[in-house]
Design a protein around this nucleic acid. Sequence first.
DNA 1: CTTATTTTCCAAAGCGCTTTGGGAGGGATC
DNA 2: GATCCCTCCCAAAGCGCTTTGGAAAATAAG
Lengths: 339, 339
Amino acid sequence: MNLKELAERLGLSQTTVSRALNGYPEVSEATRERVTRAALQHGYTANANARRLAMGRVGAIGIIIPADSSQRFGPHTAEFLAGLAERLSAHEIDFLISPLINNDEISVYKRLISSKRVDAIIVSHPALVDERITMLAKAGFPFVLHGRTEADVPHSWLDIDNQGAFYQAASHLLDLGHRHIAMIDGLKGFTFSEHRELGYRQAHLERGLPIDERLIIHDRFSDDIGFAETLRLLSCEPQPTGIIAGSMMTALGVSRAIRAKGYQVGKQVSLIAHDDVFPYLNASNMVPSMTTTRSSIRAAGTRIAEMLMLQLDGAAVTAMQEVWPVELILRQSSGPPVR
Amino acid sequence: MNLKELAERLGLSQTTVSRALNGYPEVSEATRERVTRAALQHGYTANANARRLAMGRVGAIGIIIPADSSQRFGPHTAEFLAGLAERLSAHEIDFLISPLINNDEISVYKRLISSKRVDAIIVSHPALVDERITMLAKAGFPFVLHGRTEADVPHSWLDIDNQGAFYQAASHLLDLGHRHIAMIDGLKGFTFSEHRELGYRQAHLERGLPIDERLIIHDRFSDDIGFAETLRLLSCEPQPTGIIAGSMMTALGVSRAIRAKGYQVGKQVSLIAHDDVFPYLNASNMVPSMTTTRSSIRAAGTRIAEMLMLQLDGAAVTAMQEVWPVELILRQSSGPPVR
DNA sequence: CTTATTTTCCAAAGCGCTTTGGGAGGGATC
DNA sequence: GATCCCTCCCAAAGCGCTTTGGAAAATAAG
């Protein structure tokens, strides 16, 4: 069943049927009603490809995911996507997930743009200097960046205050009297990771306290890494009494390692984690409950979808830029150092 | 830059250019070379919509995700998608994630089909009686089911041996001498959930042991639920000495609750979890290391993508059906009951 | 040197939709 | 009763690609 058939069956022109279905004012309410009913009855839906071809609009936004993706297609990405979906569903917009081939992200983006399969792109995990941003901006293709970059081209982005988060966490521990604080965060090179390290350093600097470079660790976010690195850290001399973990996954490993060494979390070793808020992992329910810097990555997804819609609807396309604050929530896993 | 322009610039017809780029044999190698080079140089990629419109093929497969998706868009889905991506990327096939609106899954599927946006669909989380399967089969639309259903229509599916998994887990605990074993699994109604319960019951039945219905719990997979339910269970009389958890997330909560009650995992209370294998959560690294029934959900995704490709390539479209065995891996979290 | 066969390329007809630029028909206005 | 203006509808021209059915050029066969 296509438009032509439907029109014939109704004794109307294709034009009228198309207009009736797309809500144009040039058709009478009676006809519109009749058309809508017939469409429903015959299960007619416009062929999306033809529609897009004719309109030049696509009705989908693109996201690029590494193919061998243990790395980035983890729980963070999933939550983020869930947030996007929440908002985009209202607009009947789908998303197209392109697997990343050969790690040549730039060419995947170019392919996505020139094959006209998406109206806009969401870019994630920016590095401080990120070729993708300049390329997309130069190409004039609509996109929103999740995160921040130092590129000096106008574009929309949303980021959380990663520096502030780790600044608060480190400050809190330092003020409690901790003097050897480790941080186990994400991979180096990404903006969020660098910003967090900056916050950590800033807290020390402001207090005139030295930094032990061996205590700054960058790696993937995973339970394993948290566990292994913490075991290693706790064998160092002097032993760190506080640990800041970049993700809840990491924190799970850290807290296991602390227990495995025979210490108690929040006593001999304090732990603060950054919590992206996973529905299946609740910091306040943990034992001991976990002190966290919290910011919902799902909410960020929703807001980014919104920004994208605004941008696509032409409105004020002046770049929207938002930094979300991160709150430090004190719970039982952090306390003054104990001998 | 479109086909027409490119053809003009090359002094060739659109036909020839199109054929050259799509590998048809009717063009000389010399011309093909020339065309390919020019396309690359001018950054030409065929407009996907026009291409699909002309060909009737789409180059994308559809997946449906709940919009308010704390429920199902969790780590399991993410891992599964990662598996799909791994395989599909080789074929330059994208996937289209349609958010589920109003929970009316059937109509979303129908829309997806009739709008011709995907070549095939992947269906997840089947119920024992699942309307979607019969609908898709009747419509003759290519799809692969992740899981199983009782519908008597020919279709491809891949499932793991959920019944066997819980049968093994329960049997192991029973054989160790446990007599009060709880299971905290996924929501009722889904096939996997029912099959697991079946396995659990079978183990008891075969040994002529009674089942305490209060010990069978169905709910979402989450840390919280695991925690709360376990606290409740451990206040029951008689107290269960073994718990089987349907997911690693649940198991995290369970093991926290066990410790919170002052017991040790693997001593007073044994714990076996089903492990879908998350790269950021490693059962053997836990403390104590976790006895699991293991089956990689990512691998399942990869295989399902493969089945889909086979089906689309027309080959033997006789329904492919696979049940993957699940292995019980004994570690420290399960042992004989201790007073 | 013809004639039959390939090889190599092309014009034009769709694919199913949106949208431009009008054209009937029916009230309202004078 | 003629004129004007809406309201409601339509024919036809794209959107950018693939593919059918030939035709011209090059090669092989007689």
